[in-house]
Design a protein around this nucleic acid. Structure first.
Lengths: 150, 150
DNA sequence: ACTAATTAATTACAATTGCAATTATTACAA
DNA sequence: TTGTAATAATTGCAATTGTAATTAATTAGT
């Protein structure tokens, strides 16, 4: 039975706080630039990188760690904004693809100019190259363990 | 103008993903143990550590990085559950204190037995002592910079 | 081939959040 | 002191989220 020492406990607290503050700040930057919320970027970049710039909604749900219900509705919003389009899946008529539109790609690019600046300024700037490596290893190890477990 | 390299970019992505996965897992552990959501713990521990185990709602809002509206309603829920009590503030009649109740303290303790296990298992276990120090420094530096800025 | 179980996506409803008033009190300045 | 601005908390309303049903199509077992 593992025990927590005080440095570990306080790191967890700082980790949560840093996440909240960073995300709030990034959201604020998007808002100030008149851009859509944070979450939309994840959809756009996932589609951009997918084959044919399209993904099944259920794939998208997994990728984004969002449940299906909410992907349905997130997709509704992006579709309303003209950034993606739904396409029925011929192999499986139950399913739907989300396809990136031209406007969607442009939005991804516009958002990235803001987003990359924010990440660099608030996050990466505070990490040495070595920090980055160490940090990546540790977080990856956590993710792997979570995967294996359940 | 700062630029992002690919290691930094992918670390940011992993950071976000790790946060989501960890928080989901902890929530799940609380739920399985029949305990209230994550967020309640933050309220309980904040009050426990405050002088007289009480805080103004606005202080609580700052501490939790939640806006006042939502603190009002979070406090409603905890008060309904008997874990805190509101008390009018004599110095400033506009204001209210949230006071930790006996049941609230007991709940904090019960939650901590579950929570500390989860943190240790999913998070701290993957960090060496040195990692913990480095990690803490980096995140603290981000938080400080965010504070100074705006 | 046919029924039952599974899966993809959506919808309904309740709970939570964010934003914009609102209320009550305090602080300040003419 | 009196009127104006600022502050603490709350409330109303719209948008978002989570959970549980619902619908439609596919897969598996007999």
């Amino acid at each position: 039975m593992t025990q927590l020492d005080s440095a570990q406990n306080s790191l967890w607290k700082i980790f949560l706080m840093a996440h909240t503050r960073l995300v709030n700040r990034v959201e604020q930057d998007f808002k100030q630039a008149g851009l859509p919320p944070f979450e939309w970027y994840d959809v756009l970049i996932a589609l951009k990188q997918a084959p044919d710039q399209q993904m099944r909604l259920s794939e998208l749900a997994q990728e984004l760690l969002v449940n299906r219900t909410n992907v349905t509705r997130l997709a509704d919003r992006l579709e309303n904004a003209g950034l993606i389009q739904r396409k029925v899946c011929k192999d499986d008529r139950r399913g739907a693809f989300a396809v990136l539109t031209k406007a969607g790609l442009e939005m991804q690019q516009k958002m990235w100019t803001v987003y990359s600046q924010s990440i660099a300024q608030y996050f990466s700037r505070h990490l040495t190259q070595k920090d980055t490596v160490v940090f990546t290893k540790a977080l990856t190890s956590m993710l792997t363990a979570l995967d294996e477990q359940s």
